[in-house]
């Protein structure tokens, strides 16, 4: 594989940034940490918005980071075709900055939830899911207090019609149900794409399920999307 350089953007309060660098490195990517105030390097081939608690989740999770100047650069790079993946807090930042539709807000339980969940692959025809088959069930960890996907019914209908749902929460057998929905997300949505499929956000953590030393590696396929 030709070296692909991926910027993992650190905001004040990011805490999955190094995990993302390690996971991407294990897949042969050239991942680098980029402090948000330093701006987006010109030569990057991809961007990860990592998990964490940027700005202490003040106001709303992701709200502050989404308005930091580097996000204008990320939006511009995304519009020019650079792949962008937002994970967990990065997903909240992605939605807050209009890279992706909808919003992630307080879990139905009103609690922080840290557990493994099953996800059904809804659309295997994106860079982030091309390593899977539609209907595959993958197991990834979640760790969030504000992961409930909210969007208007009309807009969600549009997203579903446009095949922009990447993953839905499900049980081990791939059945989507309220019981298998950990946070009350509308239609069990766990990840969506932006206007173009090379921009995506998801609440579960693929980078925490990539290194075989740590157990399952179901998340590798998502990060491999940067090679497409």
């Amino acid at each position: 594989m030709a070296r692909v350089t991926i910027a993992v953007i650190q905001f004040g309060g990011s805490n999955c940034d190094r995990d993302a660098v390690q996971a991407l490195g294990s897949l042969g990517f050239d991942a680098e940490l980029v402090w948000h105030e330093d701006g987006l390097p010109a030569d990057v081939d991809g961007v990860v918005l990592p998990g964490g608690f940027s700005y202490g989740d003040y106001l709303r999770a992701g709200a502050m980071a989404a308005r930091s100047p580097i996000m204008a650069e990320v939006r511009e790079a995304a519009s020019e075709g650079t792949p962008v993946l937002g994970i967990c807090n990065g997903a909240q930042i992605g939605c807050e900055s209009s890279l992706t539709p909808g919003a992630f807000t307080t879990n139905e339980s009103a609690r922080f939830q840290c557990e493994h969940v099953y996800l059904r692959v809804e659309n295997a025809d994106t860079p982030w899911t091309s390593q899977y088959e539609e209907g595959d069930v993958v197991e990834l960890p979640i760790a969030h207090g504000e992961g409930r996907y909210e969007i208007s019914d009309d807009r969600l209908d549009e997203l579903e019609a446009e095949d922009r749902i990447l993953f839905r929460y499900c049980d081990e057998d791939g059945t989507v149900s309220p019981e298998a929905n950990p946070n009350g997300s509308k239609h069990s949505v766990a990840g969506v794409t932006g206007d173009a499929e090379h921009v995506a956000v998801m609440m579960p953590h693929p980078e925490r399920a990539t290194l075989s030393d740590l157990g399952r590696t179901d998340g590798r396929g998502v990060l491999t999307g940067f090679a497409d």
Partner: peptide, 9 residues
């Protein structure tokens, strides 16, 4: 519009 509210919710 720009920050205090999120028009989606």
């Amino acid at each position: 519009e720009r920050l205090l509210a999120n028009p989606t919710i």
